[in-house]
Design a protein around this nucleic acid. Structure first.
Length: 486
RNA sequence: CGGGGUGUAGCGUAGCCCGGUAACGCACGUGCUUUGGGAGCACGAGAUCGCGGGUUCAAAUCCCGCCGCCCCGACCA
């Protein structure tokens, strides 16, 4: 049975979640370690998942009026240092080019950790009038942040992402834009990746350096820890002021525009893995799965092989014409010289939503067995119905995966009112803890230092409710979400 | 940067204490038998033992120095 091979070497999720995650990423060939410390190689299968969510998000970004642009990888030191809080926040994480062209540089070049600074400097010439606003730009690029502790996809020194940067005439319009960006992320997370998220505002301590405030979507992984899945920032006039961006408004007054920025990264590949995976490996939502269906022919003898092939030929013609919610059906027949059991495990590890087994018994009955990755539910379908049934099966699989994630999150969310209960619940069960907080940074810090939990978000759709802060008992008008986080 | 560990074939390890020119499992190649939950047998290919120096007739093994990586603590999409 399971001797050698990888059934024994993929760590069980319940035993060691980080070990499980690492095994899945490496063995499903999503990524590999690179010669550069903290940097990863994204392999074909992992990159296909990224491309799927990237393209979907790109559609939402364009549909909301933004245009893709590109800005340089290097940020001159003088620009990066203009916004005081921004520099201070990023300084420890910036990688510098200090030597080039065979000589030391007088003006160091930062490898962008994010592009607010260089964009603010560049757009000051483009914005003269309120008629030049809003300016709605988006960049798909790579950034570098010198992390001390890295993890594949979740936190790497270099990562791929999208950063939107916008400028507006009024604060109200900028605030709406912050919501627009976050809504793009919510749609991709929930509708495409089947990951339910909580939208909310970050506390002062957790906000982006240089922002007025930061909003985020927060998701729960299958170990009940939280993961920040996308952030959208109100920059106010901070960068505009330090870069000297001014426009002449309708009232003939010179004003600084209001900025926003928002980002979504390859971290979401990690989120998708951790939100849905199980002991057999990845479980991919159909919308992002590089393959929707793998067909495993089963045959012992030459005659059986010929019989199976004879039904595969018309089936393949039909599969080629199937259209799904995420484009043409993505499918493959696995004709490798491996045992069926090997192939089942191979594709389950890779999270392919459905597999179709076709053996001699099926051929004579004119049917095949469709097995769903999510719960290994088996269904026998007549051969001529399979192609036409698949789009509906993929839709219900996507919906069931989302529903399972919602149920899991709800089952691991707790409402707590006092600090002792908070601590014991966190230690015994983990998950999201809804509790009252007075808004003071000192209370937030105390919880973090004593329990390891942080305030993930102050939810937008939280019910107003009078209560008392966990720590100092001061009044609070709404519960916030505490959790241990990635 | 502080503390702990580790480096031998693509991966995981043994050998090191007690020096004698490298072994095992997985993966890989060829052939035959196999195939409804990780197949079997046979043959085969693959390693200047992290790097540099030293001791010795002889170093993966002993000595000195360096480097890399991993785990734990302060930062983060």
């Amino acid at each position: 049975m399971a001797k050698g091979g990888f059934v024994t070497s993929i760590t069980r999720q319940s035993e060691d979640f980080p070990g499980w995650y690492n095994d899945v990423v490496l063995k499903a060939e999503l990524a590999a370690y690179s010669p550069v410390r903290g940097c990863m190689i994204i392999r074909a299968y992992g990159y296909a998942i990224w491309e799927s969510m990237r393209d979907e998000l790109d559609r939402h970004i364009k549909a909301t009026g933004h245009s893709n642009v590109y800005f340089p990888l290097f940020v001159p030191r003088s620009l990066l240092e203009k916004e005081a809080e921004h520099v201070e926040g990023f300084d420890p994480q910036v990688a510098w080019v200090t030597r080039a062209g065979g000589k030391d540089l007088d003006d160091w070049l930062a490898i962008r950790p994010t592009s607010e600074a260089i964009i603010a400097d560049s757009v000051k010439d483009w914005i003269q009038s309120y008629r030049d606003l809003p300016l709605l730009m988006n960049l798909w690029n790579n950034v570098v942040r010198w992390e001390l502790r890295t993890r594949l996809f979740l936190r790497t020194t270099e990562f791929l992402w999208q950063e939107a940067h916008t400028f507006h005439a009024t604060e109200e319009e900028a605030a709406t834009e912050v919501e627009t960006g976050l809504e793009c992320y919510r749609k991709v997370a929930e509708d495409w990746l089947a990951i339910p998220v909580i939208r909310g505002r970050k506390s002062e301590g957790e906000k982006f350096p240089g922002a007025v405030y930061t909003t985020a979507i927060e998701a729960m992984m299958r170990d009940t820890k939280a993961l920040q899945a996308g952030t959208s920032h109100m920059l106010g006039q901070n960068f505009a002021r330090s870069a000297g961006i001014e426009f002449l408004d309708r009232d003939n007054q010179r004003k600084h525009p209001y900025g926003t920025s928002w980002g979504f990264s390859t971290r979401m590949v990690g989120a998708t893995i951790m939100a849905h995976g199980d002991d057999a490996g990845l479980v991919l939502p159909p919308n992002v799965a590089p393959l929707h269906l793998v067909v495993v022919p089963i045959a012992r003898t030459e005659d059986e092989r010929a019989a199976v092939e004879s039904v595969l030929e018309p089936l393949e013609r039909h599969l080629a014409e199937v259209t799904t919610a995420s484009g043409p059906l993505r499918w493959q027949v696995d004709r490798r010289e491996e045992s069926p059991g090997f192939k089942f495990n191979h594709w389950e590890l890779r999270g392919v939503p459905f597999r179709l087994e076709i053996g001699p018994r099926d051929v004579s009955a004119g049917q095949a067995v469709l097995v769903r990755r999510l719960d290994r539910a088996k269904e026998t379908l007549s051969l001529d119905r399979i192609a036409s049934e698949l789009p509906a099966r993929l839709l219900s699989c996507q919906a069931d995966l989302y529903r399972r994630a919602v149920e899991f999150r709800d089952a691991n969310s707790h409402v707590v009112d006092d600090y002792e209960t908070f601590k014991s619940t966190l230690n015994d069960q983990g998950g999201f803890l809804y509790a009252h907080w007075c808004g003071q940074a000192s209370c937030e810090r105390q919880v973090n230092e004593e329990t390891g939990a942080t305030i993930r978000v102050i939810p937008f759709d939280g019910e107003p409710e009078a209560g008392r802060c966990l720590i100092d008992g001061r009044p609070s008008a709404q519960r916030v979400v505490f959790a241990r986080a990635y």
